[in-house]
Simulated assay, not measured.
Amino acid sequence: MRLQFYDIIPSLQPYIKLICSMDCDGEADRQHIRVLPDTCVELFVNYTNSPVAIIGDELHKRSIITFRMSRPMDVQMRKGTGCVAICFYPGMAYNFFQLPMHALSDLTVSLSDLWNGMAAEIEEKLADICNAEVRVNLVQKYLLEQLASDTYDAQVAYCLNQVQLSRGLITVSKLTNDLGLSQRHLSRKFQQYVGLSPKEYLQVSRFICSLDYLKEYPARSLTEVAYKSGYYDQAHFNRDYKTYTGHSPGQVVHSQHILY
């Protein structure tokens, strides 16, 4: 699979984490990768006649959106597939799809179900374009048209930023005290924009942080990585890995098919 990353236009930079093109050839349809849960929503716009992927046991033929996952997902990209992939920052996909994120968690949805005839229009235009950068610019143009500027929630954005700055180690009570909100009110906001409660978001963020440490400090022991990531003991560390990856931390380190 060939990946090529592109610049995000300034108007979309607060909402989109990355944009890339993905082109599959050779043995792509015989291999699978395990994608681990994170807090992001991802859009895959297909510009070929080939099905975009097999996710789990389901074949997806056209453009899709994968919403926030709570469990690992096995993906097989199909031979001949080409798509533009967009990864939204946590809490930011709501601005483009206007649907409560908690109702869509763990779902992979056809783009045509959300954007109706516009999905087919985008696919047809992309199929007629040979230049990858032009394709990406066109997708960004459509995203900009769908951006709803009045749905930005400053309180949720503040919390997401604080979680990132603390690498998942801030507490829910600190967030609610900073904002003067009840935990129930903040939880409702998180469910709508992010797709999970603040407590769940912190748990996933801590897990993602530990994956970063595994890559950053490959020589350190798993016990060191666990404590540096904010885990109180090895048992909780192992439990989260089993939940989010289906494997132990050691198996994740040595696996060739897990994407993190």
Results as ranks from 00 to 15, higher is better:
T39R: 14
E58V: 15
Y217D: 10
L165Q: 11
D74A: 08
H254P: 07
Y231L: 00
D57L: 14
T81V: 14
K79E: 12
K79S: 14
C159Y: 11
V45T: 04
C40F: 07
V84W: 06
S248R: 02
D74C: 09
K79Y: 13
L143S: 03
Q164N: 09
R239A: 07
M118P: 00
V41C: 11
N238A: 10
Q98D: 06
L181D: 08
K189F: 01
Q13N: 04
F237N: 05
D233C: 09
Y213C: 08
L160S: 03
A226L: 04
Q183T: 12
L126R: 04
Q162Y: 07
S210R: 01
D74N: 15
F88N: 10
V75P: 07
Q234C: 09
T108G: 01
K215E: 14
S173R: 10
V109G: 00
E224G: 02
G56M: 14
H257M: 06
V45C: 06
T81W: 10
I55H: 07
A226H: 07
H32F: 11
G117K: 03
G56T: 11
K125G: 01
L179F: 02
F5W: 08
Y217Q: 13
A148G: 02
Y94A: 02
T171Y: 07
K215L: 13
H102Q: 11
Y232P: 01
P198Y: 06
Q76I: 15
D74H: 09
I122Y: 01
P218V: 07
G168F: 13
V35I: 11
G26D: 12
Y47W: 08
F5H: 15
